[in-house]
Design a protein around this nucleic acid. Sequence first.
DNA 1: ATGTAGTTTATTTTT
DNA 2: TAAACTACAT
Length: 726
Amino acid sequence: MDVSHILDGLNPAQREAVTAPPGPMLVLAGAGSGKTRVLVHRMAWLIQVEGVSPFSLLAVTFTNKAASEMRHRVEALQQMPVSGMWVGTFHGLAHRMLRTHWKEANLPQAFQVLDSDDQLRMVKRVLRTLELDETRWIPKMITGFINARKDEGLRAQHIDSGGDPVQQQLLRIYTAYEVACQRAGVVDFAELLLRTLELLRDNQELRAHYRSRFRHVLVDEFQDTNTIQYAWVRLLAKDKSGQNGNTGAHLFIVGDDDQAIYGWRGARVENIHSFKKDFPDCLMVRLEQNYRSTSTILNAANALISRNDDRLGKNLWTQGEQGEPIQLYAAFNEQDEARYVIDSIKRWLEQGNARSDVAILYRSNAQSRLFEEQLMMDGLPYRVYGGLRFFERAEIKDALAYLRLLANRADDGSFERVINQPTRGIGNKTVEQLRELAKDMNTSMWKAAEYLVQQPGLTARAGNALKGFLQLVESMQQTVEKLPLHEQTEHVIQHSGLLTHYSQEKGEKAEARVENLQELVNAARGFDFHNSDVIEMDMLTAFLAHAALEAGDAQAEAWEDCVQLMTLHSAKGLEFPLVFICGVEEGLFPSERARSEGGRLQEERRLCYVGITRARQHLVLTYAERRRLYGKDYYPMPSQFLGEIPSEYIQDVRFGSGKQVVRNTGSVQQSAGNGIMIGQRVMHQKFGEGMVTNCEGQGSHARVEVNFRNSGSKWLVLAYANLQLL
DNA sequence: ATGTAGTTTATTTTT
DNA sequence: TAAACTACAT
């Protein structure tokens, strides 16, 4: 059989991974080493050479983007659509299983998925029914608590409060939240995973079914898996003991422990170490040849990351060019930083380069503002990543809430969201009454409302308003039932009054909202859900699930040919010929929190590693010597990460090009770079003779405290102080 | 219901 | 500092 189209162009390590015999496999894939390529070719290899049916392949990723890219690339290599293969995110696949086995999972058929905003609202409502103070039990912290527990696979009943009253209360809330979700027929993100895990764990028949179906499970970005995701993968894996007969999948795990940057949201790099222990016979391949960056950039990245402990170890190399040194610009302040960055971009663009080939990376979103202002002044189009995504916008969520209510009357969250949106004279009082009643009757607010309108109790006005709402939903349901999805959507935004409501609002924002609502109809029209497998899901339910699981892009506009602005986190997986990493200062990057909380520096360093390895040809690092933050001036030290990059790869461009910095990586307590030590006697043009009594920072922008014989103690920036050594 | 004055808060984010 | 949120009055 001719396998050249699968193996041609692969390097030996990639080839080894792609052609590996069945069995547990760990691929340590460095940045830019062709990771996706290996995954895709492995799948093609399994199908075409090993004769594995696509039906028995399962590939898991973290983002929808990665999943669809993978699917497309496999199909391209296959030169035909591959059906039966499961490719998706952990959440998407879990959702799929729950849809198929909703009965076994103890869910209503029309169950809905809560996004994080829905979840927060749900928690707030639970707190209200428990009559707890929101300032004491902060909703955000509660969702954090619940999600963290679920991500660890823990239900409230599994957790021992240890008698701690706070813990007890949290567990009480957790339990009440669970009950509320179950009754409303809604499932949050973490629940998708936990429910599926429990389903497979407790239902021997289903477990056996999937274990015999999936012969190969491939996992991307394994360093980002959390406890429950790894447990899920293990449940499907062939185990050595043979307890489960000859069923179970061969695992093909791809990851990079050096790029683990999501520990703060429950990802466990340790899983990558556990994998070696759990599957002792696993093979390990390192992909270290990099096809992206210059050797200068790679060397800098290697040197930096080598400071971390407990690495599996990896050294990126390239056959490519050495490239230019990394530029380091010490800005006077954040304005100067932005000015320098945008000026550099303009120069680079004048050489005929594309705007979309430039990325400005920063640690926190707030940093984008100054760059935006400067870009605006220079008339350069730009795109800022992040912000609200399409399906997360208020007007869209309103419309979806109506649709959800049509699909599932028990969905109290949606009920509350739209009962008075647009305003129809149903005030807080009535809603409060409904909430109480629903609680007492142990039923949904919808049912409570149906009951309440039959009773006296309400004022005529409130009663009529409520009746009107109930009738509105019922009549929408009736007209819409047999219509195609986009007409359902259109009908709902029209007749709910949402469209009128938003078109009456003034301002640019309102215009955008109306456009978004119209765009929602288009999205519904374009939504194609192929009921290829046996999933009992109607179009509407599928669309609503899609909205929750795939929140869409942040903006609909075309933004090719824009300068790209994003956080270091969102840059993961991307690459650009020219990269700026800005605000490389202690307190910003690494962040103050990471500095003060022990053990979090390593993840910051990995983040820096991720940032550096985004650059193909040119990398520019900048920091400000003065930064205004929260209304106060700070004089931060340059980031310690700068000192961890060997100076030979760095060119300081503060005073034009060509000046090489002598960087001192020793203790800053004693030495401030350029060999100036505490105790050094110096001469200053103006202040005269003095002695260095203190210093901080490294390199030419370190500051020294000099005690002058005649004019007292002063802090001076070495680079400008022009001190003469005595 | 909506605007205003006062208060709080200020990593990172996908599903 | 400034945005986002809250409480309160209209």
